[in-house]
């Protein structure tokens, strides 16, 4: 499938774990470099962030993105991770992203690969949101069928910061994303959305933990999955409200569609609360396509396959709609292609 021109011409590319800058058309004011250079330019920041997550693997390849205080950028920063000749031990990336005070940025990270050789994309991404910063963070994992994608994403939010993340997973043979979000300053807000769209024997696993450690923070997890054929989609979501997390508001919702009797959905929202005075909710649903809705569409002359496709699009609609139009234009065709495979259509 052809890549959207925004990604092929404007994105920063990371190929087999190595950063390529030349073609990138970056929004002004951002500092982006590889992690090794960042050790020289911002040693204190880098060391401090790295100390928070220790990993025995060689995690010195990666990106350092520094967003200065007060920087507000309308256009998104696009990062394209691609595997075409991956090392046998897998591609290992460690990213550090720092959002300065009152900054407002959108980042899209897109993952893809090519070829039949099995490979793995392993990444650790650490994000630090300073006071009053806003980060809109979109992921799309669309790796080759042979790939394993393993991601560890750690987010620390200071007071009044706002983190919106929307993660789509359409590719890879198996993927595991572990999100740990800590709300450390008061009135920090986090909206974490995920969408697995899997078929064949794909496995997708989202594991999300949100720690409410400060007063009056807000979090909302909205995870969805569509599983067809023999695929398996799992979501484990947890909210931990510490004794310091007074006046917490936390929501979790997991909605899932099973398209085949061999597919599997596992969903497990959890709450762990160590204080009073909180507002928390969780819910989960697993179902098939609604036969009344299908009949309604068919009775209007719409063929079964197309009717299913319309309902699948409707299911992903609110997640897709939550990202900006330019990013939608990148992601939508890929998701549409995947959905048409699942509704019995023939496009590839």
């Amino acid at each position: 499938m052809k890549l959207h021109s925004l990604i092929s011409t404007k994105a920063l590319s990371v190929v087999n774990g190595e950063l390529f800058m030349p073609s990138a058309d970056l929004p002004e004011g951002l500092l982006v470099c590889d992690l090794q250079s960042a050790f020289v330019t911002h040693p204190d920041k880098v060391k401090k962030m790295m100390a928070k997550f220790e990993d025995t693997r060689n995690l010195e390849n990666g990106l350092f993105i520094f967003i200065p205080d007060d920087l507000v950028i309308d256009r998104p920063l696009l990062i394209h991770y691609h595997a075409n000749n991956p090392p046998r031990e897998g591609i290992i990336i460690r990213n550090l992203i720092y959002c300065g005070k009152r900054s407002q940025v959108t980042i899209l990270e897109y993952f893809s690969g090519e070829g039949d050789v099995a490979y793995s994309h392993n990444r650790v991404t650490q994000l630090e949101l300073d006071e009053h910063s806003q980060l809109n963070h979109i992921h799309h994992q669309n790796e080759e069928d042979s790939a394993a994608h393993v991601a560890e994403i750690l987010v620390e939010q200071s007071a009044h910061s706002s983190y919106h993340s929307t993660s789509f997973s359409t590719g890879a043979k198996s993927q595991q994303q572990t999100w740990t979000i800590s709300l450390l300053g008061e009135d920090a807000r986090c909206l974490c959305r995920g969408m697995s769209i899997v078929n064949k024997a794909q496995q997708s696993n989202y594991h999300v933990t949100i720690h409410h450690e400060a007063r009056a923070c807000f979090s909302d997890q909205q995870f969805k999955a569509i599983a067809d054929e023999k695929a398996r989609a799992k979501y484990t979501g947890k909210v931990v409200v510490q004794s310091t997390g007074l006046q917490t508001t936390a929501h979790q919702q997991s909605s899932n569609l099973l398209l085949s009797s061999n597919a599997e959905i596992v969903t497990c929202p959890e709450l762990e609360i160590y204080t009073d005075e909180v507002k928390c909710s969780h819910g989960a649903s697993v179902g098939e396509l609604d036969s009344e809705q299908l009949f309604y569409l068919q009775s209007r002359g719409i063929p079964t396959d197309q009717a299913k496709e319309i309902l699948l699009h409707a299911f992903v609609h609110d997640h897709l709609d939550s990202v900006s139009p330019d990013i939608q234009s990148v992601i939508t065709p890929i998701i549409a292609n995947k959905l048409s495979q699942m509704s019995g259509g023939k496009s590839q």
Partner: peptide, 23 residues
């Protein structure tokens, strides 16, 4: 099939029209 009936020119206005959120 229901869609073939519609193509042939049959139409049912539902007593309880179905909601299609997101469409």
């Amino acid at each position: 099939s229901p869609e073939e009936r519609a193509i042939k020119g049959l139409f049912l206005a539902f007593q309880y029209p179905v909601e299609l959120p997101g469409v």
